[in-house]
Amino acid sequence: MESTNVPMSKRLIGIALAAVFIVGSIFIPGSETLGHEGVMTLGLLLALVSLWVTSALPLGVTALFIIVMCPVLGIVGGLGQAIGGFASPALFFIIAVFSLPVIMLKTNWGTRLIGALIKWTGSNSRKLVLGFMIATTLVSTIMSDVPCTVLFLGFALAILKAANAKPLESNLGRCLMIGIPISAVTGGMATPAGSSFNVVAMNILQKATGASVSFLDWVIVALPVVIVMVPVTWFFITQILKPEPITDECLQGIREQAAAAKKIEPYEIKAIIVVLGLLVLWIAGNWIPVLNATVVALIGLT
């Protein structure tokens, strides 16, 4: 919510609370358990929460205010130290990973994938659930879990609407609504690019132990787990929640969308080249040290 849409009284309350937390933390002495800097950090954190909850200031302004206040209150030595965390390689990798879904959502590759999926599954509802879970898992290996889930839930809702599936009654709907998010999370484990948490974990491991995990090393360990998990989760979901059958006519609208997207546009070719190129470079980084995950991510952003 933009701060301009928030009542002035609410904004003033947020600013007043933030001031109370900051000023109060200055006068609260530290202890052996928690030093004075720690007390001021907690005060600054509470101020941040109050400003965000009340939308007293725009989100970006609030974030910058907190960064500036860290050296002002003496929590850190200077502004350079306050923003030092933003130079972390993990941050640039996360930015690049979130750019991949933006690239793919501007194309019709998802529609074509669902069209090919329906051609394979036909009107077999259990097979349809499996197809959706496989497709979601594949895309989630390079796309962040949340946008991947949103993408495939949108396709699933179109099918459920065409099948006149009733909310809270359709087992096919339950299977898809449960299976797609699980598949997105499962696929996100397959590669470091599948989830921002993966690269954060890699970065923490490297800082704590000095050991680094390459893109290929991660895939070698995680991919077999993902390959096993998809059919196992599908089996139990469809056995417990037996999806009702659907007619072939329910899938006609999706087929028409896929047929309309048959022509591949030049920007779609560029998009798929960028995505595949990043995967190739990430794997090549196993033998070429300079091509670490962050460097390749920055190449993709350019």
Rank of each mutant, 00 (worst) to 15 (best):
L216T: 03
D217H: 10
D217A: 11
W218N: 01
V219Q: 00
V219C: 10
I220K: 09
V221N: 10
P224W: 14
P224E: 12
I227H: 02
V228C: 02
V230N: 03
V230R: 01
V230F: 02
P231G: 11
T233H: 13
T233L: 14
F235T: 04
F235Y: 15
F235W: 15
F235C: 03
T238N: 05
Q239W: 12
Q239E: 12
Q239S: 15
Q239G: 12
I240E: 12
K242V: 07
E244P: 01
E244M: 05
T247P: 01
T247A: 13
D248C: 05
D248I: 13
D248A: 14
E249I: 05
E249N: 09
C250K: 01
L251G: 00
Q252S: 15
G253Q: 14
R255G: 05
R255L: 03
R255N: 08
R255F: 10
E256C: 09
Q257A: 08
Q257E: 14
Q257T: 06
A259C: 06
A259F: 09
A261I: 09
K263T: 10
K263E: 11
E265I: 08
E265G: 02
P266A: 09
P266N: 04
P266M: 06
Y267M: 11
E268Y: 11
I269L: 07
I269V: 10
A271Y: 06
A271S: 04
I272S: 03
I273N: 09
I273T: 13
V274L: 14
V275M: 07
L276K: 02
G277W: 11
G277E: 07
G277P: 03
